[in-house]
Design a protein around this nucleic acid. Structure first.
Lengths: 148, 148
DNA sequence: GTGGTTGCAAAGGTTTTGCATGTGC
DNA sequence: GCACATGCAAAACCTTTGCAACCAC
Protein backbone atom coordinates (compact mmCIF):
# COMPACT_ATOMS: atom_id res chain seq x y z
CA UNK A 1 0.00 0.00 0.00
CA UNK A 2 2.51 2.50 -1.13
CA UNK A 3 1.01 4.42 -4.01
CA UNK A 4 -2.25 6.20 -3.48
CA UNK A 5 -4.72 7.24 -6.15
CA UNK A 6 -3.81 10.89 -6.46
CA UNK A 7 -0.19 10.61 -5.42
CA UNK A 8 2.66 11.93 -7.54
CA UNK A 9 4.34 9.26 -9.56
CA UNK A 10 7.81 10.39 -8.68
CA UNK A 11 7.64 12.70 -5.74
CA UNK A 12 10.44 14.72 -4.29
CA UNK A 13 12.46 15.16 -7.45
CA UNK A 14 11.47 18.60 -8.59
CA UNK A 15 13.93 21.16 -7.32
CA UNK A 16 12.26 24.00 -5.47
CA UNK A 17 13.41 26.87 -3.39
CA UNK A 18 12.12 25.22 -0.21
CA UNK A 19 13.86 21.92 -0.84
CA UNK A 20 17.09 23.70 -1.56
CA UNK A 21 16.75 25.54 1.73
CA UNK A 22 16.14 22.35 3.66
CA UNK A 23 18.92 20.48 1.88
CA UNK A 24 21.47 23.21 2.47
CA UNK A 25 20.49 23.62 6.10
CA UNK A 26 20.79 19.88 6.67
CA UNK A 27 24.08 19.72 4.83
CA UNK A 28 25.52 22.40 7.06
CA UNK A 29 24.58 20.55 10.23
CA UNK A 30 27.12 18.15 11.64
CA UNK A 31 24.36 17.18 14.07
CA UNK A 32 21.18 15.17 13.88
CA UNK A 33 18.31 17.66 13.75
CA UNK A 34 14.58 17.19 14.04
CA UNK A 35 12.13 18.53 11.50
CA UNK A 36 10.82 21.03 13.99
CA UNK A 37 14.27 22.28 14.86
CA UNK A 38 15.06 22.74 11.21
CA UNK A 39 11.75 24.45 10.64
CA UNK A 40 12.30 26.90 13.46
CA UNK A 41 15.74 27.76 12.19
CA UNK A 42 14.69 28.10 8.56
CA UNK A 43 11.74 30.30 9.39
CA UNK A 44 14.17 33.10 10.02
CA UNK A 45 15.05 33.09 6.31
CA UNK A 46 11.54 32.41 5.11
CA UNK A 47 8.71 33.03 7.56
CA UNK A 48 6.18 31.43 5.27
CA UNK A 49 7.97 28.08 5.11
CA UNK A 50 5.56 25.42 6.33
CA UNK A 51 6.35 22.69 8.80
CA UNK A 52 4.75 20.07 6.59
CA UNK A 53 7.01 21.14 3.77
CA UNK A 54 10.05 20.53 5.91
CA UNK A 55 8.79 17.08 6.79
CA UNK A 56 8.11 16.33 3.14
CA UNK A 57 11.46 17.61 2.01
CA UNK A 58 13.28 15.57 4.63
CA UNK A 59 11.40 12.40 3.81
CA UNK A 60 12.10 12.98 0.13
CA UNK A 61 15.78 13.16 0.93
CA UNK A 62 15.58 9.96 2.93
CA UNK A 63 13.87 8.28 -0.02
CA UNK A 64 16.58 9.55 -2.35
CA UNK A 65 19.25 8.35 0.00
CA UNK A 66 20.78 11.75 0.69
CA UNK A 67 19.63 11.80 4.29
CA UNK A 68 19.00 9.34 7.04
CA UNK A 69 16.35 9.29 9.74
CA UNK A 70 16.92 8.36 13.38
CA UNK A 71 14.50 7.85 16.21
CA UNK A 72 15.56 10.16 18.95
CA UNK A 73 14.33 9.71 22.52
CA UNK A 74 10.78 10.91 22.95
CA UNK A 75 9.44 9.68 19.63
CA UNK A 76 11.09 12.35 17.58
CA UNK A 77 12.67 11.78 14.21
CA UNK A 78 16.06 13.35 13.69
CA UNK A 79 17.71 13.68 10.30
CA UNK A 80 21.28 13.70 9.07
CA UNK A 81 22.60 14.42 5.61
CA UNK A 82 24.78 11.59 4.43
CA UNK A 83 26.31 10.19 1.29
CA UNK A 84 24.33 7.21 -0.03
CA UNK A 85 25.71 3.89 1.10
CA UNK A 86 26.62 4.97 4.57
CA UNK A 87 24.14 3.61 6.99
CA UNK A 88 25.71 3.49 10.42
CA UNK A 89 26.47 6.28 12.77
CA UNK A 90 27.55 7.24 16.23
CA UNK A 91 25.54 10.08 17.67
CA UNK A 92 26.60 12.30 20.51
CA UNK A 93 23.96 12.49 23.22
CA UNK A 94 24.93 15.99 24.17
CA UNK A 95 25.53 17.85 20.94
CA UNK A 96 23.93 15.40 18.50
CA UNK A 97 27.08 15.37 16.44
CA UNK A 98 27.21 12.46 14.03
CA UNK A 99 30.14 10.32 13.07
CA UNK A 100 30.18 7.36 10.78
CA UNK A 101 30.90 3.78 11.68
CA UNK A 102 33.02 2.16 8.99
CA UNK A 103 31.42 -0.83 7.31
CA UNK A 104 34.30 -3.18 7.83
CA UNK A 105 34.12 -2.87 11.59
CA UNK A 106 30.55 -3.94 11.46
CA UNK A 107 30.67 -6.69 8.99
CA UNK A 108 32.47 -9.26 11.08
CA UNK A 109 30.17 -8.68 14.01
CA UNK A 110 27.04 -8.94 11.91
CA UNK A 111 28.28 -12.14 10.32
CA UNK A 112 28.88 -13.63 13.72
CA UNK A 113 25.39 -12.72 14.87
CA UNK A 114 23.86 -14.13 11.72
CA UNK A 115 25.79 -17.36 12.08
CA UNK A 116 24.98 -17.77 15.74
CA UNK A 117 21.23 -18.06 15.58
CA UNK A 118 20.32 -17.89 11.94
CA UNK A 119 19.12 -14.32 12.01
CA UNK A 120 19.48 -12.44 8.80
CA UNK A 121 20.18 -8.76 9.30
CA UNK A 122 18.09 -7.17 6.60
CA UNK A 123 18.38 -3.47 6.95
CA UNK A 124 20.64 -3.27 9.93
CA UNK A 125 20.11 0.15 11.37
CA UNK A 126 22.93 0.39 13.81
CA UNK A 127 23.12 3.70 15.57
CA UNK A 128 25.19 4.01 18.67
CA UNK A 129 24.77 6.84 21.11
CA UNK A 130 27.56 8.24 23.19
CA UNK A 131 29.63 11.29 23.83
CA UNK A 132 31.95 12.75 21.24
CA UNK A 133 35.52 13.73 21.95
CA UNK A 134 34.74 17.45 22.13
CA UNK A 135 31.93 17.03 24.60
CA UNK A 136 34.06 14.77 26.75
CA UNK A 137 36.69 17.46 26.90
CA UNK A 138 34.21 20.22 27.59
CA UNK A 139 32.24 18.55 30.34
CA UNK A 140 34.52 16.74 32.69
CA UNK A 141 32.29 17.77 35.58
CA UNK A 142 28.80 17.30 34.20
CA UNK A 143 27.03 14.23 35.51
CA UNK A 144 24.96 12.03 33.26
CA UNK A 145 21.56 10.58 34.13
CA UNK A 146 20.60 7.99 31.54
CA UNK A 147 19.99 4.57 33.03
CA UNK A 148 18.95 2.70 29.91
CA UNK B 1 14.53 17.49 35.93
CA UNK B 2 13.54 14.07 37.09
CA UNK B 3 11.56 14.46 40.27
CA UNK B 4 8.49 16.64 40.31
CA UNK B 5 6.95 18.27 43.37
CA UNK B 6 4.05 15.95 43.91
CA UNK B 7 5.63 12.90 42.35
CA UNK B 8 6.12 9.65 44.24
CA UNK B 9 9.58 9.34 45.69
CA UNK B 10 10.01 5.81 44.53
CA UNK B 11 7.40 4.99 41.97
CA UNK B 12 6.70 1.63 40.48
CA UNK B 13 7.76 -0.49 43.44
CA UNK B 14 4.49 -1.32 45.03
CA UNK B 15 3.25 -4.69 43.81
CA UNK B 16 -0.27 -4.56 42.49
CA UNK B 17 -2.51 -6.87 40.60
CA UNK B 18 -2.17 -4.76 37.44
CA UNK B 19 1.61 -4.70 37.50
CA UNK B 20 1.71 -8.42 38.01
CA UNK B 21 -0.54 -8.84 35.00
CA UNK B 22 1.66 -6.67 32.84
CA UNK B 23 4.87 -8.26 34.06
CA UNK B 24 3.63 -11.78 33.47
CA UNK B 25 2.28 -10.95 30.05
CA UNK B 26 5.56 -9.36 29.07
CA UNK B 27 7.56 -12.26 30.46
CA UNK B 28 5.59 -14.69 28.35
CA UNK B 29 6.24 -12.81 25.14
CA UNK B 30 9.32 -13.77 23.19
CA UNK B 31 8.51 -10.77 21.03
CA UNK B 32 8.73 -7.03 21.39
CA UNK B 33 5.23 -5.74 22.12
CA UNK B 34 3.81 -2.26 22.23
CA UNK B 35 1.87 -0.91 25.18
CA UNK B 36 -1.30 -0.86 23.15
CA UNK B 37 -0.87 -4.44 22.01
CA UNK B 38 -0.34 -5.53 25.57
CA UNK B 39 -3.32 -3.52 26.71
CA UNK B 40 -5.58 -5.03 24.10
CA UNK B 41 -4.52 -8.53 25.05
CA UNK B 42 -4.76 -7.96 28.80
CA UNK B 43 -8.19 -6.44 28.56
CA UNK B 44 -9.56 -9.88 27.96
CA UNK B 45 -8.56 -10.84 31.51
CA UNK B 46 -9.45 -7.49 33.03
CA UNK B 47 -11.73 -5.23 31.02
CA UNK B 48 -11.21 -2.35 33.41
CA UNK B 49 -7.42 -2.27 32.99
CA UNK B 50 -6.48 1.19 31.78
CA UNK B 51 -4.10 1.96 28.95
CA UNK B 52 -2.27 4.53 31.05
CA UNK B 53 -1.69 1.89 33.68
CA UNK B 54 -0.03 -0.35 31.14
CA UNK B 55 2.22 2.49 30.06
CA UNK B 56 3.11 3.28 33.66
CA UNK B 57 3.77 -0.35 34.52
CA UNK B 58 6.00 -0.81 31.51
CA UNK B 59 8.00 2.34 32.20
CA UNK B 60 8.37 1.25 35.80
CA UNK B 61 9.86 -2.00 34.60
CA UNK B 62 12.22 -0.17 32.31
CA UNK B 63 13.32 1.99 35.24
CA UNK B 64 13.84 -1.11 37.37
CA UNK B 65 15.81 -2.74 34.60
CA UNK B 66 13.48 -5.68 34.11
CA UNK B 67 12.37 -4.53 30.69
CA UNK B 68 13.79 -2.66 27.78
CA UNK B 69 12.17 -0.17 25.43
CA UNK B 70 12.69 -0.02 21.66
CA UNK B 71 11.55 2.51 19.14
CA UNK B 72 9.61 0.65 16.53
CA UNK B 73 8.88 2.20 13.14
CA UNK B 74 6.14 4.79 13.32
CA UNK B 75 7.10 6.27 16.69
CA UNK B 76 5.82 3.38 18.67
CA UNK B 77 7.55 2.05 21.73
CA UNK B 78 7.91 -1.71 21.99
CA UNK B 79 8.92 -3.47 25.18
CA UNK B 80 10.79 -6.66 25.96
CA UNK B 81 11.32 -8.34 29.30
CA UNK B 82 14.99 -8.91 29.88
CA UNK B 83 17.40 -9.75 32.65
CA UNK B 84 19.26 -6.64 33.84
CA UNK B 85 22.63 -6.26 32.20
CA UNK B 86 21.57 -7.39 28.80
CA UNK B 87 21.28 -4.42 26.54
CA UNK B 88 21.63 -5.53 22.98
CA UNK B 89 19.19 -7.37 20.81
CA UNK B 90 18.32 -8.53 17.37
CA UNK B 91 14.68 -8.09 16.54
CA UNK B 92 12.80 -9.88 13.82
CA UNK B 93 10.94 -7.49 11.56
CA UNK B 94 8.21 -9.98 10.87
CA UNK B 95 7.42 -11.66 14.16
CA UNK B 96 9.16 -9.24 16.52
CA UNK B 97 11.02 -12.10 18.10
CA UNK B 98 13.97 -10.95 20.14
CA UNK B 99 17.37 -12.53 20.43
CA UNK B 100 20.34 -11.28 22.36
CA UNK B 101 23.62 -10.12 20.95
CA UNK B 102 26.47 -11.44 23.06
CA UNK B 103 28.61 -8.75 24.63
CA UNK B 104 31.91 -10.10 23.42
CA UNK B 105 30.92 -9.76 19.79
CA UNK B 106 30.24 -6.13 20.38
CA UNK B 107 33.12 -5.16 22.51
CA UNK B 108 35.83 -5.27 19.93
CA UNK B 109 33.79 -3.24 17.50
CA UNK B 110 32.89 -0.63 20.07
CA UNK B 111 36.49 -0.31 21.13
CA UNK B 112 37.54 0.27 17.56
CA UNK B 113 34.91 2.96 17.11
CA UNK B 114 35.90 4.64 20.33
CA UNK B 115 39.54 4.60 19.39
CA UNK B 116 38.97 5.90 15.91
CA UNK B 117 37.47 9.26 16.69
CA UNK B 118 37.43 9.57 20.43
CA UNK B 119 33.74 8.83 20.84
CA UNK B 120 32.78 7.25 24.09
CA UNK B 121 29.84 4.88 23.78
CA UNK B 122 27.92 5.62 26.94
CA UNK B 123 24.77 3.60 26.90
CA UNK B 124 25.19 1.90 23.58
CA UNK B 125 21.74 0.91 22.53
CA UNK B 126 22.48 -1.45 19.73
CA UNK B 127 19.42 -3.04 18.27
CA UNK B 128 19.62 -4.76 14.95
CA UNK B 129 16.57 -5.56 12.91
CA UNK B 130 16.30 -8.49 10.60
CA UNK B 131 14.55 -11.75 10.00
CA UNK B 132 14.84 -14.68 12.34
CA UNK B 133 15.56 -18.22 11.24
CA UNK B 134 11.96 -19.36 11.62
CA UNK B 135 10.56 -16.54 9.54
CA UNK B 136 13.14 -17.11 6.85
CA UNK B 137 12.06 -20.71 6.63
CA UNK B 138 8.38 -19.91 6.71
CA UNK B 139 8.33 -17.22 4.08
CA UNK B 140 10.44 -18.25 1.18
CA UNK B 141 7.77 -16.95 -1.17
CA UNK B 142 6.58 -13.83 0.61
CA UNK B 143 7.95 -10.63 -0.82
CA UNK B 144 9.11 -7.88 1.47
CA UNK B 145 8.12 -4.25 0.91
CA UNK B 146 10.33 -2.20 3.23
CA UNK B 147 12.25 0.38 1.25
CA UNK B 148 13.98 2.02 4.18
C1' DG C 1 -1.00 23.87 -19.36
C1' DT C 2 0.02 19.99 -16.44
C1' DG C 3 1.35 17.85 -12.59
C1' DG C 4 4.15 18.10 -8.77
C1' DT C 5 4.64 21.30 -4.57
C1' DT C 6 3.46 24.48 -1.02
C1' DG C 7 1.04 26.40 3.15
C1' DC C 8 -2.32 26.23 6.18
C1' DA C 9 -5.26 23.98 9.18
C1' DA C 10 -7.38 20.00 10.59
C1' DA C 11 -6.91 15.20 11.57
C1' DG C 12 -4.36 11.11 13.06
C1' DG C 13 -1.64 8.50 16.06
C1' DT C 14 0.76 7.45 20.37
C1' DT C 15 1.92 8.79 24.83
C1' DT C 16 1.35 11.71 29.01
C1' DT C 17 -1.12 14.08 32.60
C1' DG C 18 -4.89 15.65 36.04
C1' DC C 19 -7.74 14.22 39.29
C1' DA C 20 -11.08 11.63 42.01
C1' DT C 21 -11.26 7.08 43.61
C1' DG C 22 -9.23 2.83 45.11
C1' DT C 23 -5.68 -0.01 47.48
C1' DG C 24 -1.31 -1.94 49.59
C1' DC C 25 1.36 -1.51 53.63
C1' DG D 1 -4.23 6.39 57.46
C1' DC D 2 -0.95 7.78 54.00
C1' DA D 3 1.17 7.48 50.09
C1' DC D 4 1.19 5.37 45.99
C1' DA D 5 -1.56 3.32 42.10
C1' DT D 6 -5.53 3.10 39.07
C1' DG D 7 -9.03 4.52 35.51
C1' DC D 8 -10.96 7.61 32.86
C1' DA D 9 -10.86 11.42 29.91
C1' DA D 10 -8.61 15.29 28.34
C1' DA D 11 -4.36 17.18 26.89
C1' DA D 12 0.11 17.22 24.67
C1' DC D 13 3.01 15.84 21.32
C1' DC D 14 4.91 14.87 16.75
C1' DT D 15 3.61 13.73 12.24
C1' DT D 16 0.49 13.16 8.29
C1' DT D 17 -3.17 14.50 5.23
C1' DG D 18 -6.73 17.37 2.48
C1' DC D 19 -7.10 20.94 -0.39
C1' DA D 20 -6.82 25.41 -2.81
C1' DA D 21 -3.27 28.24 -4.51
C1' DC D 22 1.24 28.14 -6.59
C1' DC D 23 5.20 27.17 -9.42
C1' DA D 24 8.67 24.45 -12.27
C1' DC D 25 8.99 22.50 -16.58
Amino acid sequence: VRIKPGAPRDPGRRPTRQRALVARALQRQPRAVSAQELHRSLRRDDPRLGLATVYRALEAQVARGTARRFERQGHVSAYVACPPGHHHHVICDRCQRVSEIPEDLLRSMLRAVEARDGFRIDHASLDLYGTCADCQRKTRSVGRASAS
